[in-house]
Amino acid sequence: MQIAIIKYNAGNIKSVENAIRRLGYECMVTDSPELIRNASKVIFPGVGEASSAMQYLKKHHLDTLIKSLTQPTLGICLGQQLMCKYSEENDTECLGIFDADVKKFPPEELVPHMGWNNLENLKGNLFNGISDEDNVYFVHSYYAELSEETIAACKYILPFSAAMQKDNFYATQFHPEKSAWVGERILKNFLEL
């Protein structure tokens, strides 16, 4: 199986790479359209800021490439946000794969939402073996609103999309690569789709 991790100007790629290797798979970190298109699984990670990430993706024609992928593709954290329609973070038009907007948390509690929180209303194969009480690790100041495509919710200040899916596109706001055994199981489920 060829697993491609999309390389772009957002951090955290090393952790994702390490997590996949721990599961016994090989992977490549690449921005080559050909390698990405031909991979059997694609991971679109990201820690960073939405507008500069989108600019980079456009400049390298990765935006149209990502939208055109047909194999299972997993966005993580900023990756999920960029797969939505629009982000309030620096007024950014995103990829529009998911029919949801990304908003800033109102400052009613500490922002960013940082730490372990439990998932709710789990749907689909990505969460095989995972239950509502299981905790995953989040670090984010912006959230994707709940939508038809939400496959896991989480509550912090308000309910939001902890994970989303449409066709072959999957995404998590949390970091499966930093979420101990729960995250490993979710990554394994994705790689076995």
Binding site: K14, S15, N18, A19, R21, R22, Y137, V139, H175, E177, K178, S179, A180, W181, G183, E184
Partner: peptide, 8 residues
């Protein structure tokens, strides 16, 4: 550590 540890 990063290769072996799956928490932050």
């Amino acid at each position: 550590i990063s290769r072996e540890i799956n928490i932050p």
